[in-house]
């Protein structure tokens, strides 16, 4: 464990909690892409199946359980409890254009051709594009609530910090996982436009609205 991975995990946890609390307290999921949240639930399910097969540490297991629990709770709030506030018209990204190519890629490019490994690879590839429906929705509505931008900032920072974690692990442990690194780079690049708007607008107290 290193500082980049720890702060990355905490940033990820913060994002998940911020979103869950935002929906729960405001009793509304306006501006939130349910499709992205479903993709994240799939990502965690496919990646954390090893909860059943191997124990790494209390930290590892508890974080995985929290991530999966919060992901499904968020999907439940969006599609069941606060369904009336779900903005389906603007959440119109065709996720099949993400899941199918990512599924195919996971079968073609992976470290080992085994079910757990392919599911892990699928979850890594899917996570790198899972935020697209949410970013697409913001571009369609032309704005985002400030709390939603904080959620996105924490979510974007988590994988950015993981990139530094991989540099650290390569330098100190000689470890690297090309699949995770390439997908992590793609994931972080997708946030660049949002990071720019977040820093130049939200941090100056303005509302995030598009076109910039």
């Amino acid at each position: 464990m290193n500082i980049f991975r720890l702060t990355g995990d905490l940033s990820h946890l913060a994002a998940i909690i911020i979103l869950l609390l935002k929906i729960w307290k405001s009793r509304s999921c306006a501006g939130i892409s349910g499709k992205s949240q479903i993709l994240f639930a799939i990502v965690f399910t496919a990646r954390y199946l090893d909860l059943l097969t191997s124990f790494i540490s209390v930290y590892n297991t508890s974080m995985k359980v929290i991530y999966i629990g919060c992901a499904y709770a968020t999907v439940y709030l969006i599609y069941a409890k606060f369904r009336a506030t779900y903005d389906g018209n603007h959440d119109s990204f065709r996720v099949e254009f993400l899941v199918v190519p990512v599924g195919g890629l996971a079968v073609l490019i992976n470290h080992t051709f085994s079910p757990l490994e392919i599911l892990w690879t699928f979850s890594i590839y899917l996570e790198s594009v899972a935020i697209l429906p949410q970013l697409f929705m913001i571009s369609k509505t032309g704005e985002a609530e400030t709390i939603t931008t904080h959620y996105l900032f924490c979510l974007g920072m988590y994988r950015t910090l993981y990139l530094f974690n991989w540099v650290w692990r390569f330098y100190f442990e000689g470890f690297f996982d090309m699949i995770a690194i390439v997908a992590g780079l793609v994931q972080t690049v997708l946030y660049c436009d949002f990071f720019y708007l977040y820093v130049t607008k939200v941090l100056k107290g303005k509302k995030l609205s598009l076109p910039a």
Partner: peptide, 10 residues
């Protein structure tokens, strides 16, 4: 193996 040690990441 490269992959196994990646398993300890979330």
């Amino acid at each position: 193996r490269v992959r196994d040690s990646a398993k300890d990441e979330l």
